[in-house]
Design a protein around this nucleic acid. Structure first.
Lengths: 343, 343
DNA sequence: CTGAAAGCGCTTACAG
DNA sequence: CTGAAAGCGCTTACAG
């Protein structure tokens, strides 16, 4: 009687390969070959099997296929982030578009998984459990051990955005250093000589690399590279940083801001403080997001192709899954300066 | 030599349950029991096994567990939508927040999957392949056969938003009918007697149900319910619909708009046409999204709790997975009128 | 409390 | 081109 409360162990219904084989008058092996599109199957056997499959609406059990050594036909895109607010992030949207585009027609499912550090155990366990053939990771902060853990677990992984540590795992990133360099050079070419920067968070390579490029650009021109403030990816923090910079150097005449969304806050402060853009202060952003063209004035910015980032990550991962050799361990995607009114 | 180009069949590395058992000096059965937290294991055996698991960093193969009859420890949230723009949708963000909240501490992974109709075959195949214990579906349009297909495949499914057909599949929805009814009653109580509505798309139950509630409300007051225009979830379509309504009935004095985002466009047109809100035309929206409180004037609207929707869907699905009985087949969540300046 | 054995539903050498 | 058989890595009655 105590058994009454037990959950019925419900096997998924539907036919098995066994039944398909029987009705088609062939062996399980042959059915398997048809399912997997192998070539050495007689036309007769193939069509018999296909008929039965259609009639029975048979669908193979992925867990069994995966266990038996076949592929899961799915990859995961893991976003190492806390809240659901990341969903609104245009970066994620762009990457996702690229991933989807690259996956088109490949019969590969994409699993989008949001994970915070405290859930990493469960995540690693799931991902390395054969449900997925590989993983794409984005939005990693600091030296998140996730890529290394998955890599150790034997799962093919590609990281979007250079990880701060874990040099062993292949990554794809925009060439943030050159982007920062181009921005600085552009400001210099405009005759500016008191050039500041609002850098991104320094727990992400994008922030560090853009800052590094800016430093290099000022160095080339023998300009001091000491006007640095930091912000995270919000207009508010950009406003704070701009305020700080103006207090330190009221006569600054150029600023490279590590993201368009940060630049929005900086522009507001410049305006409030009576600085004309670009006459008094030239401003260069980064991303070329929608915000850049609708800002006042329209923002000169460094364009990165986020969709291409997604495509390239996917291409790299699929290449590895296909066993291609000669794949580049990591890739840097070019950026380009988009000139508008602000600089 | 032709074999050279073949892909190395790479078995995932790492220890197997067999090795754990050997090192711990017990049987595979006992290791399995420890892993699954069963009670009849001696403290000694348990700790020996746990030590070895920790030392080897052993992680069970999900495909095998799933095949052997155990659970995948994951559910999917399937968004039946085309582009990556859905990611920016506050509805999805809210539902996701609710799902995550309900999943907290349950060691259940959430797979977010975006799928368009043409990929349904692959999707069904993946989901019914044991990678997932159940699925939550949202953003279904028209009579999407997806829920029925998954249901037939034996996968527990809960739909968010009443499906137009497929009455067999359990769903959770906001009580859109009552919401529309309350909106209409409120407009009536304000003394309005020429009341229009801008309805949502009629391939979604939310659109139909809100319209139905509005009709009922006008009927109660013996008012004609013939001023109906339709819009999709954009301000532009709301502007078009409002224009059409004003052309048809220049003297209308109240309008119920099926979504706040649509109401935004309607408000613009009312303003452009010199109608004062609420003096000349009272406006009631739906959703109580962020847009509602920041609109000009702030929008009176019908609040639906999208996060609660996500929680409830998840609760319902987990209940089914746990074999609970007495679960309600479907649920309707209450809405409430939020009074602000527009009506 | 524990272990040997069967079985989950497939794939894949191997031998025709 | 095809089938019998072994095996993927687990779980779970069953019998102690």
């Amino acid at each position: 009687m105590t058994g009454m409360t037990e959950i019925d162990r419900q096997r998924r219904p539907g036919p098995r390969i066994e039944e398909v084989a029987r009705l088609a008058g062939v062996s399980k092996s042959t059915v398997s070959r048809v399912i997997n599109g192998e070539q050495y199957v007689s036309a007769k056997a193939r069509s018999a099997v296909q008929d039965v499959i259609a009639r029975l609406r048979y669908s193979p059990n992925h867990a069994a296929r995966s266990l038996a050594g076949s592929r899961a036909n799915a990859i995961a895109l893991v976003v190492s982030e806390h809240g659901s607010h990341v969903l609104g992030d245009p970066f994620l949207a762009g990457v996702l578009r690229g991933v989807h585009a690259e996956l088109t027609g490949r019969h590969m499912q994409l699993l989008l998984m949001l994970s915070r550090p405290e859930d990493h155990d469960d995540l690693v366990s799931y991902l390395s459990g054969g449900h997925v053939e590989g993983a794409l990771l984005i939005s990693l902060h600091g030296d998140d051990p996730l890529p290394a853990r998955l890599h150790e677990a034997g799962l093919p992984v590609v990281v979007g955005g250079r990880p701060l540590s874990n040099a062993t795992v292949p990554f794809v990133d925009s060439d943030n250093f050159t982007g920062g360099l181009d921005a600085a050079r552009h400001l210099v070419s405009l005759g500016r000589n008191k050039i500041a920067t609002i850098a991104g968070p320094k727990d992400m390579a994008a922030g560090l690399d853009r800052l590094g490029g800016w430093r290099r650009g000022l160095g080339e021109a023998k300009l001091a590279a000491n006007l640095v403030a930091e912000a995270d990816f919000t207009p508010e923090s950009g406003a704070r940083a701009m305020t700080e910079l103006l207090d330190r150097a009221p006569d600054l005449d150029g600023v490279f801001v590590a993201a368009d969304i940060i630049a929005l806050g900086a522009l507001q402060v410049l305006h409030a403080r009576g600085r004309r853009v670009p006459q008094d202060v030239a401003v260069v952003g980064f991303d070329d997001s929608l915000l850049a063209s609708t800002a006042t004035p329209p923002l000169t910015t460094v364009r990165q192709d986020v969709e291409q980032l997604g495509r390239t990550m996917t291409w790299r991962l699929l290449g590895e899954l296909a066993g291609e050799d000669g794949l580049p361990p990591s890739l840097l995607l070019p950026t380009s300066l988009v000139r508008r009114a602000s600089a």
